[in-house]
Structures are given as C-alpha cells and as structure tokens.
C-alpha cells in the first residue's frame, strides 16, 4: 500500500469519525468537518463545471475564433454571463435582467410545447388504456386511473372540497399518503445503505488495513 493510500485511508476514517461525532451532540469538530465539506464541495463543483461545461462551451470556442467565425457567437452568452456576475456591483445589478430574461424566457418558451407533448400527453395516454386482458391487469389499471383522477381532484382548488369533490379528494390524499410513505421508506433505506457503507469502510478498509485483513 502506497503512502498516499495510507494517508488517504486515515484521513477518510478521521473525517468519518468527525462527522459521526454529531450523533452525540453538535461540537466544534463536527463544525470543522462541515465547513471543510463546504469548502471542498464548492471547489470540486467549480472545477468539474469548468472542465466539463465552461471550457468546452466558452473558452475553447473563444480560442478557435480565428478558425471558425461562427464561434464569435459565443461572445453573446459570455457578455450576458458577465452581466450576471455584475450583480455583485449594486449600481450595475440591473444588467443581469437581460441575462435572466433570455435564460428564463427561452426555457419558458421551450417548456410549453415540450412538456405538453413530451410529458403531459404520454402520461395521460399511459393512464387511460382499454381494460384487460386479465383480472390483475384490470385491477392495476383501475387503481391507477382512480388514483390519478383523485389526486388531480385533490389539487383542484377552484371548487370547494365538500360533498362529492371532498370525498374524491379524500381518496386522493390517501393515495398521496401511500406514495409519501413509500418515498419515505425508500429514503430511509438509501440512508441506511450509506450508513452500512461507512461502517464497512471503517471496519474492513480502515481497521482491516491495520490488522492486515482488509484494504
């Protein structure tokens, strides 16, 4: 095992213990780990975004402007991007409105036809199907149809939730609760799975490396 790997292992184990110390109570060590995580995340996020997105889309076309004049178009988003950064200067903050107008207006325009044809209609098509061919399929389709209808009615606030609408809405909230319960169960399992991963790291990789059994 190289020196870099050993230092990395001990560092990772130390940081894991520091973060787990929060289970006892909030303490300066945990706060140190939390802020370290924040700093590393910011730096990591920026570097990855720079290399994967900013460099190929902004810097590289700028460098190749002499080879292809079409690359000059990239100056428009770069200038608009600088306008966004100028929000830090209060007297020039209004310039960022042009950038946000282009970005938000563009995506608003794109959203209308795309979400209707790409999501809304396909979701409706999968909900409204001919029943059959066997009983399990019929039950499944009815459960789905009733659930979608009742959930939509629950979120329809133009009518007061009384009488028939109230009853349908109540069925809707039952479906929503089942869905939230399922999501909660899923989240718990995902977190427990991460916890098992960390415990395995501590026992197998870290302690195992000291006893010669893991790593």
């Amino acid at each position: 095992m190289s020196v870099g790997t050993i230092i990395g292992l001990w560092l990772a184990a130390g940081l894991t213990i520091i973060i787990f110390s929060f289970i006892y109570k909030d303490n300066p060590l945990y706060k140190f780990g939390e802020h370290l995580f924040l700093g590393v995340s910011l730096g990591y996020g920026w570097c990855i975004y720079y290399y994967n997105d900013i460099f190929p889309n902004a810097i590289k076309p700028l460098q190749e402007i002499s080879q292809d004049s079409k690359n000059a178009l990239v100056l428009i988003p770069i200038i608009l991007g600088l306008f966004i950064i100028l929000r830090v200067v209060p007297s020039l903050a209004w310039l960022s409105r042009f950038s946000f107008a282009l970005y938000i207006g563009g995506f608003a325009g794109l959203a209308v036809p795309n979400v209707i044809s790409g999501v809304f209609l396909p979701q409706l098509t999968s909900t409204i199907n001919p029943l059959g061919p066997d009983w399990p399929s019929i039950i499944k389709q009815v459960v789905l149809l009733v659930g979608v209808f009742c959930t939509v009615v629950f979120f329809f606030f133009s009518w007061e939730h009384r009488g028939a609408v109230g009853k349908i809405g109540r069925v809707g909230i039952l479906y929503i609760m089942v869905a939230f319960g399922a999501s909660f169960g899923y989240t718990v399992m995902a977190r427990v799975s991460l916890l098992i991963g960390r415990i395995q790291f501590m026992l197998h990789d870290w302690i195992g490396s000291m006893t010669g059994g893991g790593g």
Binding site: I116, T127, L144, G147, V148, Y175, I176, A179, A182
Partner: peptide, 21 residues
Amino acid sequence: LNNPNTAAYRGILLGVILSQV
C-alpha cells in the same frame, strides 16, 4: 410502488405540468 405510488405521483406530475405551462 408500481401502482398507488405511480398513480399519486402521476397526478402530482400532471398538476406540476399544468402549473409549469
């Protein structure tokens, strides 16, 4: 997960799309 859960999330999604539009 495949039935009541899908139904509820589909209902929510349809509402979200209409709001998005």
